[in-house]
């Protein structure tokens, strides 16, 4: 036996195919980071950002018969020059037709009132969960999230069965001899619907801020003689403002564009902009008008969205 073989035993070699691939890619200027980013960036550009630009473009067209049912923005004339035709008529109509102005104002009002009610209902719940014993907390949180996973449409439907003329609430009221209340097809039903379906969105961010609060602050306030209500108003409430803003925006923004709730629970006079857009598109088949309604809706929600992102950024950094 000779020992000369020993040096030729290869050292434990790791298979690193990726390293080789990476080196080769790096040579042409592609880094690993770019590969990670490429798919989500491309996808979101094509299917999120570009569509918004397309909406804006088509909002400047007019309805016409044919496929697609809107006038082309760019046309080539016989001499071969490219002509850009923009129509502002949809936007002029938005500001002059009372239907649209009223629908915007009423959407904002309904979303605002519903958000305030959701906050008033959700805050004590979030606080109770944050202060609950550890073993209860996860169960309670799961109970908050569970309806969120259940079909949104079916929950609105369940609520409509609950509130209708011969529904459970009125049957219970009937037992006590109270005449039935007309709850369905009113703005009230829409408020209840929004509170009911968006409550988890309010509770979760509130819970996240409330559970992080340092309990020694409450003890300090109590030691200094503050009564519970005072402690709440001057310690807990101010410290939970990020959660309040995040939760409120998570309810307010989607509520503005809500379609299902006003059409299943609201009455014919419940004007909401999401419903107007839906009808422009599906009933009137006026795509450019629907697009201009969408652009105007975006303008309304863009400030709340930016506010939300700022608050969320601050909450994550903590």
């Amino acid at each position: 036996m000779s020992t000369t073989h020993e040096p030729t035993i290869p050292p434990p070699r790791r298979l690193r195919p990726w390293n080789a691939v990476e080196r080769r890619l790096a040579r042409v200027g592609i880094t690993g980071r770019m590969l990670v980013l490429a798919a989500p960036v491309l996808w979101l550009l094509v299917f999120f950002l570009v569509p918004l630009a397309v909406v804006f473009g088509i909002s400047l067209a007019t309805k016409q018969f044919g496929r697609p049912p809107y006038s082309p923005l760019l046309t080539t004339t016989e001499e071969g020059t490219v002509q850009l035709t923009l129509h502002l008529s949809n936007y002029i109509r938005l500001f002059t037709d009372n239907l649209y102005v009223a629908a915007y104002l009423s959407s904002i009002r309904i979303a605002f009132i519903a958000t305030v009610i959701t906050l008033l209902v959700g805050y004590p719940m979030a606080y109770a969960i944050a202060r609950a014993p550890d073993k209860w907390r996860n169960v309670l949180l799961m109970l908050v999230v569970l309806p969120f996973f259940t079909s949104f449409l079916l929950r609105v439907y369940a609520l409509s069965g609950f509130m209708r003329g011969n529904g459970v609430i009125n049957q219970v009221l009937g037992i006590f001899g109270i005449p039935p209340l007309a709850m369905m097809q009113t703005d009230f039903a829409v408020y209840v619907g929004i509170v009911y379906t968006y409550l988890p969105f309010m509770i979760l961010p509130l819970y996240t801020t409330l559970v992080k609060l340092d309990t020694s602050l409450f003890e300090a306030a109590a030691d200094l003689g503050a009564r519970p209500l005072r402690t709440f108003l001057s310690v807990t409430l101010p410290l939970s403002i990020p959660g309040i803003i995040a939760g409120s925006m998570l309810v307010f923004i989607p509520a503005i564009g809500e379609f299902v709730i006003p059409s299943l629970l609201g009455g014919p006079e419940t004007l909401m902009i999401g419903r107007v857009l839906w009808d422009e598109f599906f009933s009137a088949a006026n795509w450019p008008r629907a697009a201009s309604v969408a652009v105007a809706m975006l303008v309304v929600v863009v400030v709340p969205i930016m506010l939300l992102q700022r608050v969320q950024g601050a909450m994550v950094e903590k």
Partner: peptide
């Protein structure tokens, strides 16, 4: 482009459904 990217990732969370639906439909048609 980090700010734009994080905005693009999280905006669909709160974007009203009617806008998302309409914008994608118009994109597909175009």
């Amino acid at each position: 482009g980090r700010t734009l990217f994080s905005g693009m990732v999280s905006a669909p969370l709160v974007m009203p459904d009617v806008i998302t639906g309409l914008s994608l439909l118009l994109l597909f048609v175009a």
